[in-house]
Design a protein around this nucleic acid. Structure first.
Lengths: 203, 203
DNA sequence: AATATAAGATAGTGTCACTATCTAAGCAAG
DNA sequence: CTTGCTTAGATAGTGACACTATCTTATATT
């Protein structure tokens, strides 16, 4: 298909598609002449991934680009690839001490692996919680740990059925794209619990 | 304290503090003369909340403003207030049909309450998941439901000890600020599970 | 009296994610 | 075969956002 059809089918303006190509987020179409290039379904699929990451996750294009490059050229191991995918996700924390996060991780018996971006993200999250006047103590952390480990374990199950390269893109995109669903379900669960209480006056 | 001290203690430039005041996100200091105004600890606390919401949650200032106004002037019931707080959080979805979300909500036996923003957010999340080429089916939803309900239920426990007005700001800020911690823990759990597996070659 | 600092208003800046315009070259219809 | 339409690819411009800098006026301070 040509660029105008790609635009129609994806709902993205031609000018924007050209912009994504310039930015290296979308491969050029196969040039057939000086004024013709042919685009395929892989371009359409890539465009949908860009939209999902950009619109639903509200990631800056620079981060979208990082994630796409992980899918295109994965690291040596899935473990490393996942680590780099995580670092493309908010909260974007600069390097600081990670004392609070470390304490929580050790309390819960999780692996503390220094270069992993999620440690800094947890640190930033804890600082934000406390800046907002809320509590983050051992009890709070313990409340979250069990269910979250359950979720994480359950998410690894479908991986077994996939091929190596499918696993990488599942891990990278799954890390990013299931998060909004998890948060939406939590919000709905809060509403549900409040709605089904006998009295509404003590939420 | 005067604005320069407020700036020093909060780490936010004077010009930015003035900007927040103009935007109505921070109350003016108590004017003592034409060129003096007095700021208190409540200004400092408010500034920290703005920073947490803006930096850690990366919310646009318009959304931060909505959340602050909920704390300052809550709705009739905590239930309503929570609903409006949720709608200030991403993903920001425009109105569309919510068929996919509805199916999931009914499958899980949660309350389907039309005006609630989390329904549209779940819809947007599901569409993003599928646009990225990932699956959202009954099985997937069921995997998440149990642990998430556990988390939500556990989060309501500390509410009982708080006063009415504390409950509102706990609910509003808690909804927003615990989310990054939950996501960071999930990412760490993935890493932990991969790291502690016998073989790393089948993630 | 001279200097510094503050409040509050107005205008300017840098970044991001497009979006519009431009140029040159095919392609399609009459 | 020629007139007009479309396209590829490059360059420049736009609008929203979140500050940031400057300006004016007035009041503390030394």
């Amino acid at each position: 298909m040509r660029i105008s059809e790609l635009s129609e089918r994806s709902g993205i303006p031609v000018a924007s598609i050209k912009f994504y190509i310039r930015e290296g987020m979308l491969p050029r179409g196969a040039t057939t002449s000086a004024t013709r290039a042919e685009y395929g379904d892989e371009h359409l699929a890539r465009l949908r991934v860009i939209q999902a990451l950009s619109d639903v996750r509200a990631l800056p294009l620079a981060r979208v680009k990082e994630i796409l490059s992980l899918i295109d050229e994965p690291d040596e191991t899935p473990y490393e690839t996942l680590g780099r995918a995580v670092s493309a996700l908010p909260p974007y924390a600069e390097e600081t001490s990670t004392d609070r996060a470390r304490a929580t991780i050790e309390q819960l018996g999780l692996t503390y692996d220094e270069p992993f971006a999620a440690i800094e993200q947890l640190e930033a999250a804890i600082r934000g919680i406390e800046a907002a006047g809320l509590a983050w103590d051992a009890e709070t952390a313990a409340r979250y740990a069990g269910p979250i480990l359950q979720i994480a374990a359950a998410e690894l199950i479908p991986l077994a059925e996939l091929s190596e390269s499918e696993q990488v893109s599942y891990a990278v995109l799954g890390t990013a794209m299931y998060e909004p669903a998890i948060l939406a379900l939590r919000r709905l669960a809060h509403q549900h619990l409040l709605a089904t209480r006998e009295t509404d006056d003590d939420m």
